[in-house]
Each structure stands twice: as structure tokens, then as C-alpha cells.
Amino acid sequence: MVTQPETVLINWSSYADTRAGLGADFARILGYFREDGTKSVAAIEEAMRASDAAKLVIPAHTLKGDSAQFGADRLSALAEQIEMTARRCVELRQQPDELLQSVVMLRQVFEQSLDALEKETNPLVQRRSFGRRNEPADTSFGRI
């Protein structure tokens, strides 16, 4: 039985490093991750439906690296598990049936990871204001 890797959903230190390194391009690159990740997950699901271990390898490898770049550690570990098991299945000429649970989990972990990353990236997300939690909201905007 395959279980979800016991890793954190997002490694915020890795996320911060990538965000700092990419600077103004970060949001655009995260958008590419959404697009490419969606395609990779769909390709993995399709390969699993076709029971084609060889077609699991490249999209799982791609998803592994892309997600690791953004600190999506749980997604990266799951994609790596799929990739490595698929490679072994190819070498042994076996069906990838043992990957069914992992592939089923993949979309949910991808969506959770992406939601967390986008929430942290979105400048419109309300941030906590330290030291002001109990103060009422200022409803006098525009009034003197």
C-alpha cells in the first residue's frame, strides 16, 4: 500500500529563496507552474488510465522538479515516488498498478500546493497586522 509522503506541504524557506531569486518575474513563473503542472498531472492520469509506465516518467519528473523549485515538498515527493516506481516498472516490464493510489492523490496535492502558493503570493490577500488584532476596522474612509 502506498501512502502520501510525510513531508510538509510547502517548505516556506525554499519558497522565499525562489521568490527572492526570481524577483518581479515570480508571479509570472508561478503562472507557468500552474499551467505546466496542470498538464503534467493530466498526462500522469492519462498514462495511468492507459497503464503505460513509460508515459508516467517524463511528466512526473517534470512535476517533481518544478514543484521542488517553489518549495512544494509534498507534491515533489509524490511526483518523485511516481517517477521512480514508473521507471522500475519500465525496467521490469510491469504494469504500474501499484501507483494507482499515488496518482489518485496527485491532483489533490497539486491543487492544495498551488492554492497555498498563490495565497501567499497574492498581494490582495489580507495580511495580519501585528499588534492591532483587537482594534475595530476603520470605517471612516474618506471622512474627516
Results as ranks from 00 to 15, higher is better:
Val57Trp: 09
Ala116Thr: 11
Thr3Ala: 14
Leu63Glu: 00
Glu118Gln: 11
Ser40Lys: 03
Gln81Pro: 04
Leu56Phe: 06
Gly71Ile: 10
Ala79Asp: 15
Ala53Val: 03
Ala42Val: 00
Ile58Arg: 12
Ser113Trp: 03
Tyr32His: 08
Arg49Phe: 00
Asn122Gly: 01
Phe26Tyr: 14
Ala53Asp: 08
Arg88Asn: 14
Gln101Asn: 02
Ala54Tyr: 06
Gly21His: 07
Ser13His: 12
Gln101His: 10
Val41His: 13
Arg107Glu: 11
Met84Arg: 14
Ser102Met: 05
Pro96Tyr: 12
Leu114His: 05
Leu92Asp: 11
Val8Asn: 06
Gly65His: 04
Gln69Ile: 12
Tyr15Cys: 00
Ile82Lys: 05
Glu111Arg: 06
Asp36Val: 07
Leu106Ala: 02
Gln101Ser: 15
Glu80His: 12
Asp52Pro: 03
Val57Asn: 06
Val41Met: 06
Val8Arg: 06
Ile44Gln: 04
Ile44Val: 14
Gln112Glu: 15
Ala43Pro: 07
Pro123Ser: 04
Leu117Tyr: 07
Glu91His: 01
Glu35Phe: 02
Asp73Arg: 03
Leu124His: 10
Leu114Cys: 00
Gln112Leu: 07
Glu45Thr: 00
Ser102Trp: 02
Glu91Ser: 13
Ala42Trp: 01
Phe33Asn: 05
Gly23Cys: 10
Pro59Glu: 02
Ala79Lys: 12
Gln108Cys: 02
Gln112Lys: 02
Leu117Glu: 12
Glu91Cys: 03
Leu124Met: 06
Gly23Trp: 05
Val104Thr: 15
Ala16Asn: 12
Val125Asn: 01
His61Val: 03
Gly31Asn: 10
Met48Pro: 01
Arg49Thr: 14
Ala16Cys: 05
Val125Ser: 10
Ala47Leu: 11
Leu99Ile: 02
Glu80Phe: 08
Ala54Trp: 09
Leu92Pro: 01
Lys55Gly: 12
Glu45Phe: 00
Glu120Asn: 11
Leu56Ser: 08
Pro96Leu: 07
Gly21Trp: 12
Asp17Met: 11
Ala20Trp: 04
Ala77Gly: 02
Leu56Val: 10
Leu114Asp: 01
Ser129Tyr: 00
Leu30His: 05
Leu75Ser: 13
Gln4Ile: 15
Glu46His: 15
Ser76Asp: 02
Asp17Gly: 10
Leu78Gly: 12
Ala77Leu: 02
Ser113Met: 07
Phe33Thr: 13
Ile44Pro: 02
Leu75Glu: 09
Phe33His: 12
Gln126Ser: 03
Ala24Ser: 09
Glu98His: 01
Glu118Asp: 06
Thr38Ser: 05
Asp73Glu: 13
Ser113Lys: 03
Pro59Ala: 00
Leu75Val: 05
Leu124Trp: 07
Ala42Gln: 08
Ala60Cys: 03
Gly71Leu: 09
Ala68Asn: 05
Asp36Arg: 13
Leu22Phe: 09
Asp73Leu: 09
Leu75Tyr: 13
Ser14Gly: 06
Phe110Asn: 14
Val57Leu: 01
Cys89Ser: 14
Val109Phe: 02
Ala20Asp: 10
Gly65Phe: 11
Met84Ser: 15
Pro59Ser: 04
Ile10Cys: 04
Phe110Ser: 07
Phe33Glu: 11
Glu83Met: 08
Arg28Phe: 09
Asp97Ile: 07
Pro59Phe: 01
Val125Lys: 06
Ala53Ser: 12
Ile29Gly: 09
Ala86His: 06
Thr3Tyr: 09
Arg127Thr: 04
